[in-house]
Simulated scan of single mutants.
Amino acid sequence: MTSRKQTELINTIPKTELHVHIEGTFEPELMFAIAERNDIRLKYKSVDDLRAAYQFNNLQEFLDIYYAGAYVLLYEQDFYDLTKAYLKKCYEEKVVHTEIFFDPQTHTHREVPLENVINGIVQACIDARNEWGITYRLIPNFLRHLSEEDAIKTFKELLAFGDLFTAFGLDSSEKGHPPAKFKRVFEMVRAEGFLSVAHAGEEGPAQNVWDAIDLLKVARIDHGVRSIDDVVLLEELARIEMPLTVCPLSNLKLKVVNDMVDHPLKKLLDHNIVATVNSDDPAYFGGYMNANFHAVNEALELSDKDIVTLAANSFKASFLPDEEKQKWIGEIGSLIS
């Protein structure tokens, strides 16, 4: 049973979000507003009709509706409004730093100019930093269901905006698209001085986590919950302090786990893994950061120490400067000292 004290702790503890797709924060109300502004007709009759479609049996069913929603995003103002709405949620939920994913190919394949996407996202981040003090990093992701050649082409185009990015990532359909498929483009990413992250071990096996580390040389694993199936991998993740950006409500909604009580998050913590809590695609999966914390806290009966560890891990695993990490980790530690 969650105590009132724990509820308050989750709601007020400083946190950073390391796994959120900006296109996945697209709330139905905003989607309809932007569609109307851009004179685009959605196939759904109402906000309620759209929300009713958010029932998924697997990752691919979600991706189909996710990409359909992104179709209405055309102009810089659209990406600004989308990003600013997400950052307002961060402010309300004590997310003081966020490292935002976006999918360039989702938009360039619709002939939306990259500058529309990037300028809108960046300006919203700058405004949120000025208004609310939220810091940020931007991480473009390659779509793994497309070819590596397409990823390389996209990477070269993104280099014109390179000073705005900290890392590059890999997302979309994991099944049938292992990390090895993108080995060359990630070599190019590292050669240009960027960090790398990758989705692995969500629908795919624990071997994909090994391959993301060994072949793509990632600094973080996104999801990684299938690591629980490989004891040797768990030991290695703890040894090298490889962070996992875990997304509980996403895992439940996409049936990676059938019940939140079966979620491996607590076991990952017990194996001394740098696990973190994140929202992934919160508009589709039923909750932003605090909702994810509350869900696992209720189901897994986390201790105050577990909650503080998860929050501290989010800063430890971030791409913030060490001095800033330690400042926040110290503030978090003082909450239960």
Rank of each mutant, 00 (worst) to 15 (best):
T309K: 04
L195Y: 14
V47G: 02
R190C: 14
T276P: 05
E131W: 11
N130Y: 10
H223N: 00
L164F: 15
K327Q: 03
A85K: 09
L254Y: 00
D163W: 13
D150S: 07
N58K: 00
A128P: 12
I240T: 02
G120L: 07
D229S: 14
P321E: 04
D78C: 13
I13K: 01
R144L: 10
E8R: 11
L302N: 02
V246N: 03
N272I: 08
G193N: 10
V257Y: 13
I118E: 12
P248R: 03
V20G: 03
V261L: 14
T166R: 06
V185M: 14
I228N: 11
I221H: 01
V47F: 05
D78F: 13
L114E: 03
K5V: 10
E157R: 10
R51V: 11
E157P: 07
L143K: 00
E23Y: 03
L300A: 05
R110M: 13
H109G: 06
N313T: 01
Y67H: 01
I134M: 05
Y75V: 04
V218F: 06
L310N: 03
R144V: 00
I152K: 03
Y288F: 15
H199D: 00
F155D: 01
T108V: 15
A85V: 04
H97C: 10
H199A: 11
K175Y: 05
P140F: 04
R226Y: 06
A312C: 04
